[in-house]
Nucleic acid binder design. Structure first.
Lengths: 409, 409
DNA sequence: TGTGATTGTTACCGCACGCAACAAATTGGG
DNA sequence: CCCAATTTGTTGCGTGCGGTAACAATCACA
């Protein structure tokens, strides 16, 4: 049923993780604040911060400037942002990004490049590896990489990080996580995760949903993806495929979708459909994002075709959101990627459909927002995903990384 | 952020709860089995069982008959099924049920009655209270009631158990949980929960989904409801409304639904629609369940209209399931209530639509099953819901119940 | 009847956290 | 400039929980 090991070690692990996560997500905090927030004793907080300091994960400093209250000033615990970092990769349909993200969520350095839609897997890997190496080279001498993750626009199996479908990027049978890990040679695994799932994670932890434990993130690119945060955690489902909201059938018998079905949300509100409805041609080599923005701008400027296209797309988006609201009762729905622009251009229509299509009770309190992290949702999500292991067991993970010669596993 | 209290007590609570839950769900088990399954030491298991025995929650006995292996026979820990029980209420559209369910999940005693569809809230409460009192009277002298819960076919807010909508049962502004608790006078709160949510819980813990931590339960009655189990826990959403799958719009612009929208799953596959499509009239006073069974039987016997009605309903059900599979990636979808009969009569159609409407990856391993608990899903779920508190903190809850005069809270 | 195997029982140990007392650092007032 | 009040760092000690090990109890089998 379950194996827990000695439970006292688990308490310690849990408390170390909670403390580290606190300063990672909410920034530097005084020991007093930590004791208050975590509900732990002063002495316990000291023991924990001492451990983390020894491990090199946090630093304790005297607060600068004059304290506002009387009494001995409390030591400020801050994450070692420059010494502890992860590699975050984003594989987009139109771009490739690699970033070095420090503990605390600071993007220390990044490399970004466009990607032509017919480039193959080998090109892709080469660019990512070269970018990562260059980032690592520029890092400080004593910096430690504690994780790495890739955001990918496709269906990814959780058990072995295998890409099952990559509708807009062909990677064949390649396990890009393993391939990247091998070629980087850092001795750390590279996770692969669906881009919209990562977006949900990012918006939940650092974006529009920091105060909401039940939210849905909808991401538009060439396709439409989604991620669900339930009870504060990303929903994976039985094999990690959960969140493929883009293939919810909102219009049975509607427009054909790349997945083989008809009337999927993706088929009705995707970039290509919007352009077609607005009477525009897809320009090869031009990022879809710009084209979508252009349609929204034209609609604002009075273009009838663009306006009708947006309204039509907004209607189907509204049906999709209504269904999600009924099924999940989220506190928040976040629109990212091209859906951000589409929502901004069709909010009234979306809300109108939602008003008739969703039950009053779950509809009453749900908020609709655009992604607060802009175009970095996937990247930030990948970084958070990569940090997950360290946050779950800070000391052990760091001990393993610092003595790679000794213990084989 | 969080308050945990002394962490060691939490460990104890957790282990006591885990042990009690084990024998509650999987039946009597030897100490040796428990030690193995929970990953705890013999001595720890002894300490835990001693606590639970003292509290009167379990009993330890020498195993009957000859043991099969050599060595000293291990004491068997079994739940005190007759001494510790909960009250489970089911408010159905056509029936009312009260049951006394013992720890371990045994239905010790029950009272069931039909309910006319125009009965009001006062009648309803009267019947339930009378039934419960009669059950309590017949119980043993030293039996302890440790919880109570009601399954209700409507939208229920979690924070205060208020019924927001009861489409087929009018209870006005009445908070039936509080009302029941007051009239029973047992000093224990009575929870109220959506019936299909409870069905999901029941099928997960004692039905078709015991080995599946990500499943969806679909329940058909007059309306259609649902419940989602994700990572082994019931999904509630922001306010507890999650699971209103019956109001997912599968057919935009389709049949009008009681909720005001059109083309909801409930409107397309509900009892009334099936009867209408099959050319049958609703007979006042006749339980819908029988009418649905009759249609399925007729279809099997060759009735063309019934067959076409089933096929049509099966198509929409298939679209609904396909969407759920794409969004959640469940390992299992369970059909209960009238949907059990409908699925049995239209399985081929449902699977056919699922095959084209869901992505290959999540579709590949999902299983479709009928409810293993038959018509008792809601009742069993209510019992499990009522047991939740004792299982979370066995000793404290029992201590509170045994000394109600002393501590005010 | 004796032997090996398995488990119940008990005393003891390590560990994590809370508590309380004391030292240190700061603010503010006389 | 000094002192009281306040807040926090630091340290030693106590409590409680689970693990370990040794011994006693009970079974199957030869």
């Amino acid at each position: 049923m379950m194996k827990g090991g000695p439970s006292q070690e688990e308490i310690r692990r849990h408390n170390l993780g909670t403390l580290l996560r606190f300063v990672h997500l909410r920034g530097p905090a005084s020991r007093a604040t930590l004791a208050e927030s975590l509900g732990l004793n002063r002495s316990t907080i000291m023991a924990l911060t001492t451990d983390l300091t020894t491990a090199g994960l946090v630093r304790e400093e005297l607060p600068r400037g004059p304290g506002r209250r009387a009494g001995r000033p409390s030591l400020v615990v801050r994450p070692e942002s420059t010494r502890v970092y992860v590699l975050a990769f984003e594989i987009g349909v139109d771009r490739l990004v690699v970033a070095r993200v420090g503990l605390g969520g600071v993007v220390l350095d990044r490399r970004e490049g466009v990607r032509s839609r017919d480039a193959d897997a080998a090109d892709l890997l080469g660019v990512l590896v070269a970018g990562a190496r260059s980032l690592i080279r520029k890092a400080e001498r004593d910096a430690v990489c504690v994780g790495a993750a890739v955001g990918f626009p496709g269906v990814v199996r959780r058990s072995d990080d295998t890409i099952m479908i990559g509708p807009n990027i062909d990677v064949g049978d390649l396990r890009i996580g393993d391939a990247l890990a091998r070629r980087l040679g850092l001795g750390i695994p590279v996770s692969v995760c669906n881009d919209a799932n990562l977006g949900a994670l990012a918006e939940h932890e650092r974006g529009a949903g920091v105060n909401c434990d039940d939210l849905i993130y909808l991401h538009g690119d060439v396709g439409v993806g989604g991620g669900i945060i339930a009870r504060g955690r990303l929903l994976g489902g039985d094999e990690g495929y959960a969140g493929e909201i883009g293939h919810m059938i909102v219009n049975p018998g509607g427009r054909p979708c790349a997945c083989g079905s008809k009337g999927c949300l993706e088929a009705e509100v995707g970039e290509r459909t919007l352009l077609a409805l607005a009477g525009r041609e897809e320009v090869p080599g031009r990022p879809g994002r710009d084209a979508v923005r252009d349609v929204v701008a034209s609609a604002d400027a009075g273009d009838i075709a663009a306006r009708e296209a947006l309204q039509r797309v907004g209607t189907w988006l509204g049906f999709g959101v209504a269904n999600l609201v009924n099924i999940f009762n989220p506190g928040l729905v976040v629109f990212g990627g091209t859906l951000r622009d589409i929502y901004l251009g069709a909010a009234a229509q979306v809300r109108s459909v939602l008003a008739t299509g969703a039950l009053a009770a779950p509809r009453d309190k749900v908020k609709l927002r655009t992604a607060a992290l802009g175009d970095d949702t996937t990247l930030v999500g990948a970084a958070e995903f990569a940090f997950a292991e360290v946050l779950a067991d800070p000391v052990q993970v760091l001990a393993r990384l610092k003595a790679p010669e000794d213990s084989p596993v």
